[in-house]
Design a protein around this nucleic acid. Sequence first.
DNA 1: ATCCTATATCGATTTAATTCGATATGTCTA
DNA 2: TAGACATATCGAATTAAATCGATATAGGAT
Lengths: 107, 107
Amino acid sequence: MDNLNVLDIFKALSNETRLNILKWLREPEKNFPAQQAHLPKEVSIKGGVCVGDIQEKVNLSQSTVSHYLSLMQKAGLLEAVRYGQWTYYRRNEETLAKISKFIEEEI
Amino acid sequence: MDNLNVLDIFKALSNETRLNILKWLREPEKNFPAQQAHLPKEVSIKGGVCVGDIQEKVNLSQSTVSHYLSLMQKAGLLEAVRYGQWTYYRRNEETLAKISKFIEEEI
DNA sequence: ATCCTATATCGATTTAATTCGATATGTCTA
DNA sequence: TAGACATATCGAATTAAATCGATATAGGAT
């Protein structure tokens, strides 16, 4: 949570599926039709999509997708919110903005 | 030369030494004292540093450094200018700018 | 307590990246 | 043309990433 772990971020971005996940999470409603179906109306995890919905879309094993999401979270690209038995992942815009700035200013 | 090869770019950026090389090439005169010592005064390869000077600084084998530079060039992060027996590598600012924009707008 | 479902972790296998020393290529100089 | 450098490429060894199925954990429902 502290400073950017630039190497882990670039490693996480070096994979087509993971890039797609990030891209799709820009517009969760559009890309994940069943989005937040498990949440009661009064709860909302803005921009969050659960692991199962993501897995269905990427067509890789459950363990692989879980691993990918965990990698991205550790790199700071995603944040996770747990609701009941579901984990909702959403973009961490702060890191995305920082890494873009980092390329402009420090690389 | 065509469009961004985003995956190759991120892979190239996923390595500390390669990141350092890019960073150092922002200020070649400062980071490579012997910079362009082989060039006659009337020739200038703006921002370019030869493989040997880079190798000396990173302290990896000649073949590894050559390979790194080639990777970065193929990814579009560097461009190479040959002068005599030397190859001068310099930053390709266009790609750097594009990748930063890509993160902002498309990931 | 038991079962079901969602997600995480483990262990193993396959595939890709790192890194080297040796060799090839290309250019300059004598 | 031969030798000396600078750089590139090759082949091999080691290390890391990708990916899976199986199993563990944790919450919800009966």
